[in-house]
Design a protein around this nucleic acid. Sequence first.
DNA 1: TTTATATATTGCATATTACACAACATTATT
DNA 2: AATAATGTTGTGTAATATGCAATATATAAA
Lengths: 247, 247
Amino acid sequence: MAEIQSLARGLRILNLLSHSPDGASITELAEALSIDKASASRLVATLTHHGYAEKDESTRRFHLGPQVVALSRSVLTRLPLREAAKPFLRQLMEKTGECAHLAVAAQGRALYIDQVESPATLRVNAQVGTMNPMHCTALGKILLAFGDNPIPEILERYTPHTITEPQTLERELVQIRRQGYAIDDEEFDNGIRCIAVPATDYRGKLAGALGISGPSTRMTRERLPELTKIIVETGRALSERLSFTHS
Amino acid sequence: MAEIQSLARGLRILNLLSHSPDGASITELAEALSIDKASASRLVATLTHHGYAEKDESTRRFHLGPQVVALSRSVLTRLPLREAAKPFLRQLMEKTGECAHLAVAAQGRALYIDQVESPATLRVNAQVGTMNPMHCTALGKILLAFGDNPIPEILERYTPHTITEPQTLERELVQIRRQGYAIDDEEFDNGIRCIAVPATDYRGKLAGALGISGPSTRMTRERLPELTKIIVETGRALSERLSFTHS
DNA sequence: TTTATATATTGCATATTACACAACATTATT
DNA sequence: AATAATGTTGTGTAATATGCAATATATAAA
């Protein structure tokens, strides 16, 4: 596989910018990529010229440009799963009172492609485009258990409950496959519990994962079975729906 | 300004892919850019490797990859306007029953950065990331009237009501500045009317535009004044809110 | 204000890198 | 199975991106 160096560098700059909430300067970018300031300057100029980056004139730092938002729209609208799942997410939110999320596997992580927010003041908001680790989120575990992604090499610890042992995770995945749903019991964020189920297409192949997230004070261990039942049913319904839309 | 050729080519490929709902093949991309198949192949390989493109194995065609969605999130969350405007959009939708939209100027077009959908069956949906022309949308006219974007050279016609004469548009903008709101009376889509107002920050500088869109059967000419009043008030409230959040 | 420091942009020579052409491999079509 | 179309891999060539140095610009200090 031949890599086009300057394109790869440009893309790495985009990635860096996306992880820099306060933007980045030319020198910072050059250092991060171990390239010359001049090269960075020219690469950023090209990105800017095409709308992929933009300079905040007040801070003189570079941010991602609006063009990437326009790109993302075309990705999201292309996903038939998103279209089909929307009413089911809404229904999920209404029945449980918690925010409902939809995710697919991307780059070894769970990429959130849609969300229906709950009206509750205290709620778990996950922006579309968020990429969370797979091993410690309910949606991610579903994607691991039913998809064809390998178990990540390193299982980073986020909370005291995070599973960091590969064997433990493997056993968990077996159980998830058996029971048909996954639970994240404060394994990624303290005080947050999630439940997720798979959405499968007409061939039974995994299309994505959907579920709810809420504060553990509201999603108590006692309520989990009742909530799980709702989510499993919704997942089945969506999967059934997907079986008839193999366009 | 020195353009990095291969990066520019890569970005142009991304643009092409975003306008190709059914994806694109290597040869199509090569033809569109007037470059060799081999070059296109290598560029796409790099894009794919970094998650910016992906191959649909069933059709053997290339689409945009999930990475661009992840990028867009960082753009959207960075915008303080979006955060601040959310409750006002919701309120707008609830009071009018129509979909509420929020847009900023980008690349000479109106870029939709947020939306609150109405529950109505017949509603005007504008995906986040959509880029509409300025001269024939209510949000766009606001951005033209109060922002510092030049009037587009060519005013493309979309419907019989589209303003295509620069002088006419200039007069319209003067009136919009005076009255403080803009109306799109089936100038972009037949059967759709929109009303929009500006959102200004603590310096009185334009931050974005917000408004509603609905079918002209429901948003009749008679109802426009009543709806306009609501929107103008909401715009003032948001602008006031923005005056206190100059972080 | 002036000086000093940090940061960004432009010129330019070198060589690395991307390029086009072609051959090969793969997949689709007949 | 044969043919056509499309995608990928070599390879020599030359154009292009690169790094260094110098200039220009902006920021901080004096």
